[in-house]
Structure formats: C-alpha cells, structure tokens
Design a protein around this nucleic acid. Structure first.
Length: 393
DNA sequence: TAGTCCCGCCATGAT
DNA sequence: ATCATGGCGGGACTA
C-alpha cells in the first residue's frame, strides 16, 4: 500500500479528447505525449542524479520525485544499467556509477560481441507457432562462459525450467539494449533503423507479432539512449526511413530538467527571485562534432565476424556503413536538423502525486546546473577555440 | 497513413 | 500471501 493513492484509473482514457477548439473543459494543456516520453523522463532522471554526491538511488525516491509510476523507472534503470551508468545494489536500490562508466561498458560489449561467433539463430524452432531465437548471454563481468546455453533440449521433456529464467532474461530490456548497441559497435553500421535492428536481433523471425513487440521495445530503448546522446535519430541515407545513428560516448552531456518540472517547482513557490524561465541551458547538445570521437572504438576491425554476415544476409539496403574513418567531422549527410529534440512545453501539468519534495530538489539542482553548464562551456571553449558559430553574445 | 510509444494489466520472481 | 519486477501489446498520439 503505497501506490494507487491518488486515483483509480478506470478503464478508458480519463483526460478525454485533446481536440482544441470546441468543448470547453480546460483552458489549454492538450495532453501531449511528448511530456511523458521515456526520453524526457530519462533526461529528468539524469538531471536529478547525474552529479556529485549521488551514490545510491532509490526507486521510490525517483518515482516520486519525477512524478511517474514505478513501472517507468524500471524501464529507465534497466537500460541505464546495461550501459554501466547504474548498478543494482539491492531491492529498490541502485548505485550510481555515472557516465564515466560508459566507455568501459561499451568496450566490454564490443569485445563480447566480437568474439563469440554468435551461433545465433540456429534457425528454426519447433513446436509453438512462435519462434524467437535470441541467444547471447553475458551480463556482468565474466571471462566468457557461455553460461548455460540451453539448446540441449530436444528429445523428451517439456523443458523443465532451468532455462525458463534465461528465457525471461533473454527478452529483458537490458539485454536487448546491449544487443542493440552491439549492432553498432561490432559492425561498421552507423545508421540502423529499428526495424532492421529488430530483424537482426531476432533470428529472422518473420513473425509480425514478435517483430512489432520487439520494435516497440527498441523505441523505448532508443529514446533513453538518445537522451544520453549515445545515438541520434535520423534517416537511412537511401530510403528515407527513420533510423538511428550511433554517436558513441562523447563525454557527458548536460542535462536539464524539463521545464514543466521546473515550472511545477516555480509555481509552487518562487524560491528564486528572478525568473529562471530563460535558463534553457538546453539547446547545447553536441550536435555535429560528435561524429569523430565516436569512432573511438571503431578501430577494431574484427567485426567481420558473424555480424557482418547477418548484415549481408539482409542486404545492405538499410544501414549506413562507414568503413572509412570519418577523419574529421565527415558527416555522410546533412545534419538533418530535427533539433526538436525533447519538447519542453511549459504548459500546465500540475497534477502529480506527492508534490512535496520537488521544491527542495529543484532548488538544489539549479545550483548544480549553473555549475555544470559553466564548466561544460568552459571546457568546450577551451578544447575547441570555438571559431565562431557561438550564438552567445 | 505510417511511425511512435504511453499505459498499465498481469505474469513472475523475491520475501 | 504480499510486494517488487518488468514482459507485453492494445491502441492513443504524431508527423
């Protein structure tokens, strides 16, 4: 008893229509999906915990501070953990590792994917109209030990259970995230559409249903990975289909609480005299220049292993290979703007359970933001003379 | 219309 | 049994 306090969601949508114009429910605030996106939530999550002093994170704490159901926190935490940013410490508790842990995690994934000639999709399954072969194991740190790769089941036995757990783990968001990332760092692919990724990760499971689900999951993953700036949304060069480009770890980006969250705090209590409305440290991002550094781990030519084979099999239509090292900012294509990034609609949204903490936390954060921003700006400015293009007066 | 992907039911694992 | 996790997919939103 700690949940479901505020409201009992009946079925149906509660916040009826969004149709502007007619009707006269409320003044504004059309329900916007964006402000509830996993990506935005992740950004807020990081803004909240990505700073010195944070050592452990409680799921309840995160849940209440961010004003979302626990379920969503699990989603975020799972993918963050798969990249090393977090580690599960105990029930309800995670240890913050920070972005500095990403490089090592990526390297491990890279090696992991390189070796281990994925004997993936030994194809076919049997029984059950649904197939779905996904091997790959691994998780933390172990010198390879293919663990218990079941697959020794034929014969007679409805499969006891030994592999039942693996089955679950197999479909976990965390593992999916790692495999998704491996697709990029263990091959020359630079741009991959979620559709292709799903196909690749699945063993060619034409099953539409499974595909759909997998893709949904990939969207979730892509959103949080995007908010960390590890990937970025674009389109495949050829077909204009939406896809994601691997950016790699380029240093830790700056995170800012979504304005609506800030607004909540502000409206509740103007702690700060001046208006912080125009702080918008946002917009920075590491847009273009990010490319080059990403090939950091690209020098491993080992990739030609099984992955490439898979890519071949599917035909190289969708992806964007980058066999040549993009010397310096060699962008294969136009930046594609899309800067829309996350949206910060500042409207409304006052509901929320436990408004308590907010103020306090946010207050803290602001100090942090300013610092973070300043040091970031300084760093960037020094590292790169910043010829011009600085839209700051 | 084709993409996105939020929402929360409910199976499953931990206690 | 209760509580913690987290698959999963219907179908509402968006572009």
């Amino acid at each position: 008893m700690s949940d479901l306090p505020p409201e009992k969601p009946n079925m149906e949508l509660s916040s009826s229509c969004s149709m502007p114009g007619s009707s006269s429910s409320s003044l504004h605030h059309s329900y916007s999906r964006k402000q509830k996106s996993l990506g935005l939530l992740c950004t807020n999550f990081l803004a909240l915990y990505n700073r010195h002093g944070i050592e452990t994170i409680g799921l309840d704490d995160a849940s209440s501070k961010l004003g979302v159901e626990r379920r969503r926190i699990y989603d975020i935490v799972n993918v963050l953990e798969s990249v090393g940013v977090l580690t599960r410490r105990a029930k309800n508790q995670y240890t913050w590792k920070g972005f500095s842990a990403i490089p090592a995690a990526l390297k491990e994934l890279q090696e992991e994917g390189a070796k281990d000639t994925f004997h993936r999709f030994y194809t076919n399954e049997n029984v059950k109209g649904s197939d779905d072969e996904d091997d790959e194991e691994e998780s933390s740190s172990q010198p390879l030990s293919s663990s218990q790769t079941d697959t020794s089941k034929p014969a007679s036995s409805p499969l006891p259970d030994s592999s039942k757990i693996d089955n679950r783990r197999e479909k976990s968001l965390g593992l999916l995230t790692q495999n998704f990332i491996k697709l990029f760092i263990c091959s020359q692919a630079t741009i991959i559409s979620l559709d292709e990724a799903a196909k690749l990760l699945l063993g060619d499971a034409h099953n539409t249903s499974i595909m759909r689900t997998k893709v949904r999951r990939l969207y979730d993953i892509a959103n949080v990975l995007s908010s960390m700036n590890l990937i970025e949304k674009t389109h495949t060069l050829d077909s204009r289909k939406p896809a994601f480009k691997w950016l790699g770890y380029n240093g830790e980006p700056t995170f800012t609480l979504s304005s609506d969250l800030m607004m909540q705090a502000e409206s509740k209590k103007r702690v700060f005299g001046t208006d912080l409305s125009n702080v918008s440290v946002k917009r920075s991002k590491t847009h273009d220049s990010a490319t080059e550094r990403s090939l950091k781990m690209k020098q491993h030519a080992i990739a030609e292993s099984s992955y490439n084979r898979i890519f071949d099999a599917l035909g190289s239509r969708g992806y964007e290979f980058g066999p040549f090292a993009p010397a310096t900012g060699t962008y294969p294509t136009a930046p594609l703007e899309d800067n829309s990034k996350r949206a910060f609609d500042v409207q409304n949204l006052v509901s929320d359970y436990r408004p308590s903490y907010q103020n306090q936390v946010l207050k803290d954060l602001f100090g942090h933001y300013m610092d973070a921003w300043k040091s970031w700006y300084t760093e960037v400015t020094q590292k790169n003379p910043l010829p011009d293009t600085s839209q700051h007066h």
